[in-house]
């Protein structure tokens, strides 16, 4: 048992991080606030060339051949950088297509040619995130999951809480009318992976906000000293670090359990989602507070973690749902 990344995994993280810092700078991306598609096709294809969309997909299915653990490390970095773009729908969509035997669809998604948006039921409509540039919708529901074409669908856009996660709805019956390009009758395994990846993204938010606050507490001086020397601030930073550590460790444990197909994998996935969700929301909130007035401005990135955390804890189920599912699991042996 070993819960720290290997050197090879550390290298993947370092590569991802430098790419995100170069291409996904949040201050530069502010120009795309509220746009129907935040990440343009060129940048999306660059991510594809780096192998991000097929990172955890088996080579026999057209992927890079790593596993869920490496994918979770990628998603933790995406969370850390509050990265916009339909990464989750893309990674899950590629796997769905590959597992359903639609290898050409999978290849187009993995190659960044075909953009996928996530569609979840909301009343008699589907709530779609990142619809702007989407060729396909990944429609998830109780009855499995399917990739459907977005051609001819009428999106009703709405102002989004997170201006980097474009929001729209579409008529559910219309979306389901055409034959799907790929589908899985039982999406349980796919959604379990999704739960781990969202948890990883949430853990990334918890980590990044803890680091942002700690750095600010070292740099910002008041009363002639860094504010981090005050116990009130120091203790908030310490609590943030503990929450980030709890989230990160739980997510890694869950990623391993799901990867290895352990009987208690759902237990750990739901637990990770609960712990990471709570950590992300709490840390994002405290991070604003720790920055004072500047933290309340649009220019500062603190608010982006707040809204991203709130979106993610409502994606592929919510806190109540995951806690309920966790309580139904048998105790781990």
């Amino acid at each position: 048992m070993y819960l720290l990344p290997t050197d090879e995994q550390d290298e993947i993280v370092a590569t991802v991080r430098s790419q995100l810092e170069a291409d996904f700078d949040l201050h530069a991306l502010a120009a795309r606030d509220g746009a129907p598609s935040v990440v343009d096709r060129d940048l999306w294809r660059r991510c594809a060339e780096l192998g991000w969309f097929g990172l955890g997909l088996e080579e026999s299915l057209g992927g890079v051949g790593y596993g869920l653990v490496e994918e979770a490390l990628l998603f933790a970095e995406l969370g850390s950088h509050a990265t916009p773009g339909p990464f989750l729908a893309t990674v899950l969509g590629a796997r769905l297509a590959a597992e359903a035997g639609a290898s050409d669809v999978a290849a187009a998604v993995v190659g960044g040619e075909s953009v996928v948006a996530l569609a979840e039921p909301e009343g008699d409509r589907l709530r779609v995130t990142d619809h702007g540039d989407a060729d396909l919708l990944l429609v998830v529901g109780d009855d499995g999951a399917a990739l459907v074409s977005s051609d001819g669908l009428e999106f009703r856009t709405e102002p989004s809480l997170d201006v980097h996660v474009p929001l729209a709805t579409v008529d559910a019956a219309a979306a389901r009318a055409a034959a799907p390009v790929a589908q899985l009758a039982d999406a349980g395994a796919l959604l379990l992976r999704g739960t781990v990846l969202i948890s990883a993204e949430l853990a990334g938010i918890a980590t990044a906000t803890a680091e942002q606050s700690t750095q600010y507490a070292k740099d910002r001086e008041q009363f002639g000293v860094p504010v981090g020397s005050f116990q009130a601030v120091k203790h908030r930073c310490a609590d943030m670090a503990v929450r980030a550590e709890a989230a990160t460790s739980t997510v890694r444990h869950a990623a391993l359990a799901v990867r290895d197909g352990l009987a208690e994998a759902p237990f750990h996935a739901h637990a990770a989602r609960a712990v990471a969700g709570d950590a992300a929301v709490a840390n994002a909130h405290v991070n604003v507070q720790n920055h004072g007035g500047i933290g309340f401005t649009w220019e500062h990135t603190a608010h982006r973690y707040v809204t991203r955390a709130q979106v993610l804890v409502r994606t592929l189920g919510d806190r109540t749902g995951h806690l309920g599912a966790l309580l139904e699991q048998p105790a781990p042996q």
């Binding site: 890694r252 444990h253 806690l323 309580l327």
Partner: peptide
């Protein structure tokens, strides 16, 4: 009560994962 119990379950599972991470760090 169900929510608090489930949260406790999630948090002891976090505690175990943190312990494992700590053991890994000490081993290193």
């Amino acid at each position: 009560l169900a929510r608090r119990l489930a949260t406790a379950r999630a948090e002891v599972s976090a505690l175990r994962a943190m312990t494992l991470a700590g053991i890994s760090r000490t081993a290193r």
